[in-house]
């Protein structure tokens, strides 16, 4: 029992910090750069991603184990996972609109946008590759998404400060953001000695 708890803890640290989904696996860069102008919207996006990735990890793990493996068609995992994730995001949107309108309002356009976030699919595929069970898949999905939240909130905070700096003309806009993201990735390399 203690062994499992320890494994889960290590998994959480490693997937949220050490192999951060954005900064060392380079997944989900589009929302990372696109929705990080303000801390508030970044937190909204991060929250929505945690929500969807956690559920998607669980559902795809179930589908993999009880549909793809028995029929021996695991090579179709990518296409099936995309299908499942898209449908899941749709369902989550409908559910929230009906029962939690306040959260639906707060997440707004970010919720449907998550369908196109490759981190969701990436984590589902990584879980399969690493042969995690359903429980481990959910924990792995959740902590990876937390890593996404950490990264996007830090970047948004830096970008809010950058807005008032005197940046050379050729670096204004996206170039300086990409350089910032690169420096953050280097900084996150520091976590690699943790485990």
């Amino acid at each position: 029992m203690l062994e499992v708890v320890k494994d889960l803890f290590v998994l959480m640290i490693s997937s949220s910090l050490v192999s951060n989904v954005v900064l060392s696996q380079f997944l989900g860069l589009c929302p990372f750069l696109g929705v990080s102008k303000k801390v508030n919207t970044a937190v909204g996006m991060g929250g929505a991603v945690i929500f969807v990735i956690t559920i998607a990890s669980g559902v795809t793990a179930v589908i993999y184990r009880f549909v793809l493996v028995p029929f021996d068609i695991t090579y179709l995992q990518t296409i099936v996972f995309i299908l499942v994730i898209a449908a899941l995001v749709q369902f989550v949107e409908m559910f929230l609109k009906k029962y939690v309108p306040s959260l639906y309002q707060a997440l707004g356009v970010y919720l449907p946008l998550i369908t196109t976030n490759c981190a969701v699919l990436g984590i589902a595929l990584t879980n399969v590759q690493k042969e995690y069970g359903i429980g481990f898949s959910i924990v792995s999905g959740f902590s990876t998404a937390v890593g996404f939240l950490i990264a996007i909130v830090i970047l948004a905070g830096i970008r809010e400060k950058i807005a008032y700096n005197d940046i050379p003309e050729s670096f204004r806009g996206m170039p300086i953001v990409l350089i910032t993201a690169g420096l953050m990735a280097i900084a996150f390399c520091g976590f690699s000695g943790l485990l």
Partner: peptide, 14 residues
């Protein structure tokens, strides 16, 4: 059959 079935199921579900 399997992918079609999954698609059909998701479609009905939605």
């Amino acid at each position: 059959a399997v992918v079609g079935g999954v698609g059909l199921f998701l479609g009905l579900f939605l």
